[in-house]
């Protein structure tokens, strides 16, 4: 076979593989949109459910926003600080290797395990009850590995020479991290935040026992209140309540997907703005 033809075949293979990867995503979007758009109305988005499976999804939208926001507020500072420590300060020894291994494994733990853990620790032991607070903490523990790993990767990608230049000019280690490393790792850290937002807003299992209300036609009044959340509401409507029209489920799906995309978009635009300002 001549090299030109071989080149063509390889190219086609690569192209088809990429196409196959994105096809399911487009199909999912297409069906959710096609079915879901039928039930979307101003009323659907802004009113409380009158009965289970009817009325609007407003409390679930707000609940998901609260849960996501709370999770970001807890997991991002904690995860970024831990990432900085592991990448910049921790010496290579058995303990740090164990910690790193634990983080990798934590990312692979099934989400229902986090749900049960949250039930045990936050709901029962710490007596937060099934509440917004417990839910945020549980989701935070779930997304922490994502934030930590993204932070570590982002910091590792900043050239070592930047650190050496900064130190050679008499800057302290913390100044070096603050002014010479973090600014250039910010984009990568934000990518981790975006991923964790997607994860936190879409997961059902971790909030199943810790935060989500089956039916709660009003907004939470404090962080110790239960909340409705879109993924759990979807699960309930689709499987637990008989006689609900299928398209209502698709409608909730659509709202959830659009919500996640909107939150991600904000983060993406922020990242774009930051990267535009810096050449590096």
């Amino acid at each position: 076979m001549n090299p030109k033809r071989r080149q063509k075949i390889v190219f086609s293979l690569l192209f088809i593989s990429s196409l196959l990867v994105i096809t399911p995503i487009f199909l999912i979007f297409f069906f959710i949109f096609k079915e879901g758009i039928k039930v979307i109305s101003w009323e659907f988005l802004t009113t409380s459910p009158a009965r289970m499976g009817g009325g609007g999804v407003f409390p679930a939208i707000v609940g998901t926003l609260y849960l996501t926001l709370g999770t970001v507020l807890i997991s991002v500072p904690l995860g970024v600080l831990a990432g900085i420590y592991l990448s910049e300060y921790a010496k290579e020894n058995l303990l740090t290797r164990l910690v790193k291994l634990a983080i990798i494994n934590l990312a692979g733990v099934p989400s229902i395990v986090y749900g049960l853990f949250g039930l045990g620790l936050f709901v029962i032991f710490l007596r937060f009850g099934a509440s917004l607070l417990s839910g945020c903490f549980t989701l935070s523990i779930m997304v922490l590995p994502i934030v930590i790993t993204a932070t570590k990767e982002a910091l590792n990608n900043v050239p070592q020479s930047f650190r050496e230049v900064s130190l050679s000019l008499g800057a302290t280690k913390w100044q070096t991290i603050r002014y010479c490393v973090l600014p250039y790792a910010f984009g990568g850290i934000l990518t981790g935040v975006i991923l964790s937002i997607g994860r936190a807003s879409g997961e059902t299992a971790p909030i199943l026992f810790t935060a989500a209300a089956f039916y709660l036609p009003h907004l939470p009044r404090s962080i110790f209140d239960q909340v409705m959340a879109l993924p759990y509401h979807l699960y309930v409507v689709a499987t637990q309540v008989p006689g609900v029209e299928r398209r209502v489920s698709y409608g909730i799906c659509l709202v959830l997907v659009v919500l996640v995309i909107l939150i991600d978009l904000i983060a993406l635009i922020t990242r774009y703005q930051i990267r535009k300002k810096k050449l590096w």
Binding site: P159, S161, F162, E164, V165, S166, S168, L169, G170, A171, T172, Q175, Y179, C180, Y184, K278, L279, W280
Partner: peptide, 22 residues
Amino acid sequence: FALPIPLPISVFDNISYGLRMQ
């Protein structure tokens, strides 16, 4: 250093970096 390693900031900020850190 062997290779020129300007920090990806302005000329002014590069040169004043050491003093600013003081």
